[in-house]
């Protein structure tokens, strides 16, 4: 690994594998994410997106392979890695029995946000996600979308170098989705914050991401800009490109087991 690569690639993953007993959830994947890039993991349910994020964020021990995140290794230097990122988990991760404000304060203290800027930063973010008026309310009284917004605000609180978003806009109305993405893109530009997100929504991947990795069955099938992926498959939309790419894989791999065809694959076939 050259010095050059170190400075431009904020995430380097090589030959990463995660097995749960005999089942291989992440199957020998390698990729790089450039500093300041918005990078998407696009794939159906069970593809291995969350498992990959868990390994990148020190929550899960890889079976084998190598990860470098902002110059640190999540296995050996967990704290170094933990300082670099913020994350919005796929599943809820708020304390329902604390207020919105208390959830933010808890985070700010764990991440050692200096006292003098803490309150201002929290107010700024809560105002942005339109929860400032509800700051003193228990999170359990929030709707799903409000909780999601609070989690996004919390993930940004400590100015992370990398922001992981695991299906961040699931359950949000289109207007809120746009609002949040615009804000994240704005920080991405202003602070050169790298964004790594997963999604099922192709339009979202296409609209937001600089580069997309298509992942299925734990393998990265294709990787490139939305334009690359379309050119590569000679299709006009990412949706068609995705079908062309994963469709091939399904045919090759599962010729023997029709029963294993994925729900998603079936859906697209019907659509055509």
């Amino acid at each position: 690994m050259g010095i050059n690569q170190d400075s431009s690639d904020i995430i380097v993953v090589s030959a990463l594998v995660k097995k749960f007993k005999a089942f291989t959830a992440v199957d020998n994947i390698s990729f790089e994410v450039k500093r300041g890039e918005i990078f998407a993991f696009l794939g159906p349910n069970g593809a291995g997106k969350t498992t990959t994020i868990s390994m990148l964020t020190t929550l899960l021990q890889p079976t084998s392979g190598n990860i470098t995140l902002n110059g640190s290794n999540p296995v050996q230097d967990k704290d170094g890695v933990r300082k670099s990122f913020g994350i919005v988990f796929q599943d809820p991760s708020l304390d329902d029995d604390m207020t919105a404000l208390e959830n933010m304060q808890y985070h700010a203290i764990l991440y050692k946000v200096p006292k003098d800027i803490r309150d201002k930063r929290i107010e700024e973010l809560l105002r942005f996600v339109e929860l400032w008026d509800r700051k003193k309310d228990m999170v359990k009284t929030f709707s799903g979308g409000m909780k999601r917004r609070l989690e996004v605000a919390r993930g940004l609180l400590h100015h992370p170098r990398i922001l992981f978003l695991d299906e961040p806009t699931l359950g949000l109305d289109p207007q809120t989705r746009n609002h949040i993405w615009n804000y994240i893109k704005d920080i991405n530009k202003k602070e050169n914050m790298t964004v790594f997100f997963t999604t099922h929504y192709m339009d979202e991947a296409e609209r937001v991401a600089d580069r997309i990795a298509i992942i299925d069955h734990g393998k990265i099938i294709s990787i490139g800009t939305p334009g690359d992926l379309k050119n590569q498959t000679k299709t006009n939309s990412l949706e068609e490109a995705f079908l062309a790419i994963t469709g091939n894989v399904i045919r090759e791999e599962e010729a023997s087991g029709v029963d294993q065809l994925r729900a998603m694959g079936r859906m697209w076939r019907r659509k055509r």
Partner: peptide
């Protein structure tokens, strides 16, 4: 309820 993850990824 998932809150443990929030604590466990913190650099502490």
């Amino acid at each position: 309820f998932g809150f443990l993850k929030e604590t466990m990824v913190a650099p502490v």
